[in-house]
């Protein structure tokens, strides 16, 4: 068995953002809030997920910041849905619930600055964060 090591973890900050904190914000404000957290070198764990159009807007704003914000090279992003392997009726039920709640709250979105998070590997049931310098 391979020898396990926790490595040296120094000052890793994880910021949990409940959906209620962005629920009443418009798309621009949501993305601004998310990028502010990420630029503060925290790994953001967001309850729920952004709409597809917001995800592309997040990518566009990220691209606009590369080269303008010192040492900023972009973000790593992953969304895990608690119900990706559900059948049709489960998805229908979830979509109805999402429509009422305003977001798919069974999902979790993880976002980190690329200068901290080297890679996020996602499989349907597992998510792995590979950090820089470890």
């Amino acid at each position: 068995m391979a020898k396990k090591s926790l490595g040296k973890i120094k000052g890793l900050s994880v910021y949990f953002l409940p959906y209620s904190e962005i629920k009443d914000l418009d798309s621009s404000e949501r993305i601004k809030k998310i990028l502010n957290i990420v630029l503060g070198n925290s790994i953001l764990v967001l309850q729920g997920r952004l709409a597809p159009e917001e995800e592309t807007r997040l990518i566009e704003d990220t691209m606009a910041m590369i080269g303008h914000v010192k040492n900023f090279k972009g973000i790593e992003l992953a969304v895990i849905s608690g119900s990706e392997s559900d059948g049709f009726f489960d998805r229908l039920k979830r979509n109805l619930l999402s429509a009422i709640a305003g977001s798919d709250l069974t999902s979790i979105t993880i976002i980190g600055a690329a200068s901290i998070v080297k890679e996020i590997k996602k499989n349907p049931k597992k998510i792995e964060l590979f950090l820089k310098g470890f």
């Binding site: 709409a51 995800e55 992003l77 969304v79 499989n123």
Partner: peptide, 16 residues
């Protein structure tokens, strides 16, 4: 690995 979020974001936008 196809589970890269960029792939999912692109397809999600096309569906939308």
């Amino acid at each position: 690995n196809p589970y890269n979020q960029v792939n999912i974001t692109i397809i999600g936008n096309l569906v939308a």
